[in-house]
Every structure is written in C-alpha cells, then in structure tokens.
C-alpha cells in the first residue's frame, strides 16, 4: 500500500500547471472533448490526488481501502486522466491517445477499460448514487476509505442527485464528500439562466449535509475545505467549489467571446497560446 506523500503548496501549484498543459494538449490533439469543463476542476483534483487527501496505490488500483474519486461530470475526464498519469497509473505519453480508436482513454470514463477509474460516467446525474454505494460498502466492511464525488453545477438539475443526497443523509455517511464544481455554465448557457439552482449551500444543508462554499480555483481554500470535510464525523459533507470554467486559460478563451467554451477543443493556434500562458 502506498500513501502518497503530500506535495508542498508550491509543488501543488506547479502541478496544476502540469495538469492544465496535459488537458490542452490531449484535447487539441483529439480534436474534440471538454477542456473548459476540465480546467475549472484542476485545483480540486490536484489537492485531492497530490495534497495527501487520497490514499491509493497505482500498483493495486482496486486495493479495497483506497480512497475513491468518482467523476460524475464524466465529460471532464481529461483532468482525471492527467492526474492519474501523473500518479503513475499509466504513462504520461498515453495521454495523447485520448478519444482515438483503441485507446483506453475514452471520451468519458470507462471503468472496464482502466482499473483506476471508479465509475463509468457520461450520463450526468448518476455518480453520487454510486458514491453512496461505495460509502455504504466501506462502512459495512469497517474500512476507513473516503469517497469523493465531483458533480457539475448543471448536472445538479438531475433529480437523481437529490435522491442520492437524501439517501446519504439517512445513513449518516461521513465517509462521503460531494464536490459541486460550480463553474457557472452548462452546455447551453449560464447555469443561473437554465435553472435557478445556483444557491447550493442552503439547499444541500436542508438535506442534512455539512456544506462549505469556497473559491475552488484557490488551492489553499481547497486544501482547507478538504481538511474540514475529513474532520466531520457525523454527516456527509459537501463542498460547493465556486470556480471559473476554463480557469487558467481564460485570457486565451476571452477574445473568442465564448466564456463557456463548452465541449470544444482549442484550435492548434489557441493551444499554442494557452501552453505559453501555462509555461513554468
């Protein structure tokens, strides 16, 4: 069993740039995918995988007491592949096979293809229920493992998410943390214009959860919130992670006039600019 030694704050900040460069390269090379949806989640994923919050072992991906990360907003899988490659689950060189025929790195997470993927997702709304199942099983088996589930703010429109919130509260699943990547946009526009679910904290609190709202692109706030989430022992915890879609490459996206940039890779030219911006 490997316990990952947490990186220092500076090392983690450097790692966010590494992940962002991977995301740009792999989606531009694929010619499709969701870079902006991946970018907003980079600080959270970095803190989880490299900040000492996730105990896991690339030599045994299905080790039963591993901490789990389920990407319910599966279209943002480039950020997950980037982190998994950096952890050593597969070679970093494999990242550029994203979405190509025969690649294990499919357009949405596929747990049959890769042992380090916890759930096959891509149909939004389902990951938190699977997380409840993991948390129940870990509890039954006396394991200390914690399960983290990341959802999109648009994804919160799915009724199943609220069903999962209710069931987790019923079983007082303190070993479960839901992270809402509130980047303000979904496919067809600003989340506040599609459905007015945007005040997540009081809604999730009303379901009996412990909830924190933070700036999710500030890695220090992310680390602090994850520490608090682990310290809560009587209830499931949620982090409303307020982020910006495309964070890290916004100066490159802004001139296009599309701050959502949903489901579009960067052109080669924009990718060059983004990589220059993300250089060490």
């Amino acid at each position: 069993m490997a316990i990952f030694k947490p990186l220092s704050l500076d090392e983690m900040k450097a790692k966010t740039k590494v992940l962002r460069r991977h995301i740009v390269r792999m989606t531009t090379e694929a010619g499709s995918g969701h870079p902006s949806s991946s970018m907003s989640a980079v600080e959270m994923v970095t803190a989880l995988f490299f900040g000492g919050f996730m105990q896991h072992d690339p030599a045994q991906p299905r080790w039963n007491n591993r901490d789990r990360f389920i990407l319910s907003k599966g279209h943002a899988v480039p950020v997950l592949y980037a982190a998994l490659a950096e952890c050593g689950y597969f070679p970093v060189e494999e990242l550029i096979t994203l979405r190509k025929l025969g690649s294990r790195l499919e357009g949405h997470p596929n747990m049959k293809r890769l042992d380090c993927i916890e759930a096959s997702t891509g149909s939004l709304g389902q990951g938190l229920s699977v997380g409840v199942g993991h948390a129940l099983a870990c509890h039954m088996d006396g394991l200390s493992a914690h399960t983290y589930v990341m959802l999109g703010d648009g994804e919160m429109g799915e009724g199943q998410v609220w069903e999962a919130l209710a069931s987790a509260e019923k079983y007082k699943l303190a070993n479960l943390t839901a992270i809402v990547d509130q980047n303000g946009y979904q496919q067809t526009g600003a989340t506040k214009d599609v459905l007015k679910l945007t005040e997540f904290q009081p809604k999730i609190e009303a379901f009996g959860w412990h909830v924190q709202t933070i700036n999710g692109n500030d890695i220090e706030q992310v680390i602090a919130a994850l520490k608090i989430a682990r310290s809560v022992k009587d209830r499931p915890t949620a982090i409303v992670s307020q982020t910006q879609k495309g964070f890290g490459i916004l100066p490159v996206l802004a001139p296009t006039g599309d701050l959502n940039y949903h489901g579009k890779p960067l052109s080669k030219e924009l990718a060059e600019k983004a990589l220059a911006l993300l250089a060490d």
Binding site: A30, G31, S32, G33, G74, R99, E106, G107, H108, N110, S120, T121, G122, S123
Partner: peptide
C-alpha cells in the same frame, strides 16, 4: 457519433 464514446 464517434469520439464521445459508448456513454453517449
């Protein structure tokens, strides 16, 4: 549909 994969 192609690159998005089986979930879609």
């Amino acid at each position: 549909i192609g690159e998005d994969g089986a979930s879609q």
